[in-house]
Design a protein around this nucleic acid. Structure first.
Lengths: 340, 340
DNA sequence: ACTCGTTGAGCAACCGTTTTCCTCGCCGAA
DNA sequence: TTCGGCGAGGAAAACGGTTGCTCAACGAGT
């Protein structure tokens, strides 16, 4: 028995024919026994299952894929490197997909269109079931072109085409959380230091934060938003600037944790007490920044892994039923630490 | 012609039979024309190529894989998350493999053995050509078990089994670069502040650094290695400690950039001039730390992407010829900035 | 003129599963 | 006893390429 099966499988792996032979049935019957379809005597099914067990049979995915015309694989395209932002998204997606026995094919385009096209061809050749596209920036990006019949979900960077499916972070909600938190803790003169104005993330959060302040008792310290870079150095410079132009500022809402840390460092060096005198709120909840800062930063967490998970779920929907077009936003979370 | 081809491909994708029909040859001949094997009249081959062009034919990978018994895919298992260390390795590997039309299947085990086994089964079912295993720590890890007939290369965390193929960072070389650089710039009393002693990376670098100092004119400031955590907070505490116990210290060699930054911060706060009075060298060349530090840190770069690339190349060797067992080390690189 | 070697191209088997018919035997009912 | 129906299981055709083998035709050599 065993040696017969052994003999017939020179590759070392048992095939369905070996299982069928051992169970004394035909290949077709063995297949039905495994898939649960087709009617058969329970003991026959059991014989097949026993044979599967004995031989350690595992179906050949290539054969299944060839037959089904799909691969139980999705492509994950990251448009510029795999950075701090795309990694959690990617893991969230991998997690959600892995549960459904779907695997993830990794493609990094490094922001290069040639590379992107190359990977796209590759993914289509492999008949992937779907594609998730993710970027580092939250700015909308042009849709992938040349893809037909394969569902696509954009994560983090939504597609400019609103008939595509996108999952993005709720930037306005994030700004809302931060400002409301500062107001609720009694701050009234709030400065906003953030990244470059040509980044959608900086613009949207700023606009919403300013809007909220206008509708409240509080005011925007310095009278304007301080756009700059996403760096600690800018945070340090901006903090000095604000302290000079609006000395009575009692809170900083920063566009990311690096800026916030720069701000906190400067306040510390100038002898201003955080949070006693001035509160600081960051954005991103990037551990290495937020926790290492003195004091540790209250910050906004974008729930990036959740974005990845949702993107994966949307993709699964699109794969086996209908895509839900539009931009789905994922709420942020306020993480309170000692800086407020 | 065209509408005939169209008609015969309800899926929208042309198959080889369509190409053959359009070129007026048999399927077998068309296949040979594409693969370059088989002898035929040049004009026949050209007719086939023209048909391919016209129809936009792309071969079905599943069919090819089924026939060949391989998938032109490798599994990339990361053992704990995809962090700061595994990401560059992963990208390096993806880059090297992508060139050879091999794709990367991403598997994240989150350090969980159940998950690891699950992914392993999956990879074997998909008949991957090989597997790259990478971790966050440089400590050796137990080999993957239950894998047969599939080449494996361990990257960053070598396998404990020396008959496996591993690619790791040259920790000793890294320590060497740092110490030699400090000695060359005239430092004579060097403190070493690093991570937990139970981490191989901390131990190995420390041992080698101490060895070098013993063979030189210089001495280890404080008389011992300061093991602790990989954090800024520890760097700050350790710097204070060293300044107290060995006030004449003129250099710090730190186990990573976070520690180095903590050290630099404390020195700054204590009014000690870096690098005038005291030099600081970090490890990892982690941009966000090394560049944001005041002053920017001289540090050791492990060339992680190169490790990924080499691992991929070793894997390719193992796939289509013979594996080269043992641990291959990748040299580090000294990045000089303003802290020395 | 006849045979042999060469070359271009087709035929068909195969890779491993799934799925759609079919067949066959057995049962109960007339 | 015979017929209809039904349930279990088998045969074979896909899925889309690859490749070894066969075969016809043609030119060259005797």
């Amino acid at each position: 028995m065993t040696e017969a099966a052994q003999r017939s499988t020179p590759t070392g792996r048992a095939k369905l024919a070996d299982v069928a032979a051992l169970a004394g049935v035909s290949v077709g019957t063995a297949s039905k026994a495994l898939s649960g379809s087709g009617r058969m005597r329970p003991e026959t099914r059991q014989r097949v299952l026993d044979a599967v067990e004995t031989l350690g049979f595992r179906p050949n995915q290539h054969a299944q894929s060839l037959h089904a015309g799909r691969s139980w694989t999705v492509g994950l395209m990251t448009t510029d490197g795999i950075g701090r932002f795309s990694t959690p998204v990617l893991l969230g997606a991998e997690d959600a997909l892995g549960a459904g026995k779907i695997s993830v094919l990794l493609c990094d385009t490094r922001g290069d269109t040639i590379r992107e096209q190359h990977h796209l061809r590759n993914l289509m050749d492999r008949r992937v079931d779907g594609i998730i596209v993710t970027g580092r920036r939250t700015d909308p990006r042009p849709p992938l072109n040349g893809v037909e019949g394969i569902p696509i979900v954009y994560a983090l960077s939504p597609s400019t085409d609103s008939s595509d499916t996108s999952v993005a972070s709720d930037d306005r909600g994030g700004a809302h959380l931060a400002i409301e938190h500062l107001l609720a803790t009694g701050r009234g003169r709030i400065a906003h230091v953030t990244g470059p104005e040509h980044h959608a993330a900086a613009r949207d959060r700023a606009r919403h934060a300013v809007g909220l302040l206008e509708r409240s008792e509080a005011q925007l310290a310095g009278g304007r938003v301080h756009f700059g870079e996403w760096s600690e150095a800018w945070g340090r410079r901006a903090a000095d600037l604000v302290l000079r132009t609006a000395p009575d500022t009692d809170a900083f809402f920063c566009g990311n944790d690096q800026i916030a840390r720069g701000v906190a460092d400067t306040l510390r060096e100038r002898g201003r007490d955080v949070p006693g005198e001035i509160a600081v709120v960051g954005y991103d909840n990037w551990d290495t920044m937020a926790l290492a800062s003195r004091p540790p930063l209250t910050t906004i967490d974008m729930n990036l892994a959740e974005i990845g998970r949702i993107a994966a779920l949307r993709l699964l929907e699109a794969i086996d039923s209908e895509p839900v077009p539009g931009v789905h936003t994922v709420a942020c979370r306020l993480v309170v630490r000692e800086s407020t």
